[in-house]
Design a protein around this nucleic acid. Sequence first.
DNA 1: TAAGTGATCTCT
DNA 2: GAGATCACTTAA
Length: 172
Amino acid sequence: MLKLNFFQRPTLELAPELLGKFLIYRDKRLLITEVEAYDGLDDLASHAARRPGWPNGRRTDRTEVLFAAGGVWYVRLIYGMYWMLNIITDKKDYPAGVLIRAAGGFKGPGKLTKHLEIDKRFNNLPANKKTGLYFEDRGVVVPENKIITAPRVGVAYAGPVWSQKPWRFYLK
DNA sequence: TAAGTGATCTCT
DNA sequence: GAGATCACTTAA
């Protein structure tokens, strides 16, 4: 099982390493094939980014979990229908996380969580065997040249700089 | 291509 | 409390 030391380090370093790892829930083991990183106070695509009126990052009931130390889940509803599954990363008080976009053949974060029946019950819970939703390294080796980087999806509102950051990683 | 859905944020 | 916004999917 991937432990806290995997998640409590720089997000852009660990995000591509999640490719080829497995997402474990109940009797399912899904190979992770696509992720997206959201990193830090200046990342305008992040819900926790620094904004006018929020010089130290936007901390509300919803976004508080982003400021937690790495290793807990951030699950949030989008468009009134779809649950987005993110793992929080890096150190306490530094807002960052990785969205799981595709795993086990389920392409699209909404489809993935629907299949796994994951919803807000997991928000703020740790990724470990007790909660039943966690990651495993099952020995799959992903060569560097199999990893594609691309701009993140659906974040045009973040402006020309942040919406174009190549922080989406997927397997060729 | 556009509707569906509801939590959350901002402004009153 | 009202109105806008949204890290998407599906059916057409």
